[in-house]
């Protein structure tokens, strides 16, 4: 993640230690992937209670931009900054593979480089990425355009009961969601792992380019 951010902004992001309580002056907070606290209790559950989270919640309340990827998404749902939860993958196994994402929400800080319906490839790597939420929450997410990305096939077809195009079994094939003010985005796949032709492509780059433009604006 730090490599991708540096590639887009030209400068290395500042790393924050979990025991810190102050974010300092920042435009963007990124919660990266990576088994915080070993994911031993429940993915993201312990990180949601780490000392720095108070400052992150305050940052969110002030309208700050937050991106959570993989474990970062799990942490955001555990803290309540985003609704719903991530269950074990439907096949009960860790999945590490490429997937295709269909862009659902236009004109958000995270997606404005794409048009609605665009499809891009990105790796995913998780054991607990099966998004779920209660019916009322789902209706709100769908009704208010807060679904950012859905799992799809290469042509953009979305089929929630298809284990190939919706590998972890997420409800409504949801891969990423937005907060009500659309300034917080959580997603399970890793666009930051596809920002370099050498590593197989730059499909994930528009998210970071767009995000940087949005927060600088």
């Amino acid at each position: 993640m730090a490599i991708a951010l540096k590639r887009v902004t030209g400068q290395a992001p500042r790393m924050i230690w979990h025991h810190e309580t102050d974010l300092g002056d920042t435009d963007l907070v990124v919660l990266p992937g990576g088994f915080s606290y070993g994911d031993y209790l429940r993915c993201g559950a312990m990180a949601a209670h780490s000392p720095i989270m108070g400052a992150i919640k305050a940052f969110a309340q002030k309208g700050g931009h937050i991106l959570g990827v993989c474990n970062g998404f799990q942490i955001l749902t555990e803290t309540g900054l985003l609704p719903g939860a991530l269950l074990r993958n439907a096949n009960l196994r860790f999945l590490s593979q490429d997937c295709y994402l269909k862009v659902e929400a236009e004109n958000t800080p995270f997606t404005h480089k794409w048009k609605k319906g665009d499809v891009f490839r990105t790796p995913l790597a998780h054991g607990d990425g099966n998004y779920t939420a209660d019916i009322a929450t789902l209706e709100r997410l769908e009704g208010e355009g807060l679904v950012a990305f859905r799992y799809a096939d290469a042509k953009g077809n979305v089929q929630a009961d298809d284990a190939i195009s919706n590998p972890n079994g997420s409800i409504n094939s949801i891969a990423g969601i937005l907060s009500e003010n659309k300034r917080i985005c959580g997603m399970m796949p890793h666009p930051e792992d596809l920002v370099d032709p050498l590593m197989g492509g730059e499909d994930g780059l528009p998210l970071f380019q767009g995000l940087v433009e949005a927060v600088v604006r």
């Binding site: 993640m1 490599i3 991708a4 992937g33 990576g34 196994r93 860790f94 999945l95 590490s96 790796p123 790597a125 890793h190 930051e192 792992d193 370099d196 590593m199």
Partner: peptide, 8 residues
Amino acid sequence: QYDSTVGG
């Protein structure tokens, strides 16, 4: 089932 891309 193995994360092959972590670390970028």
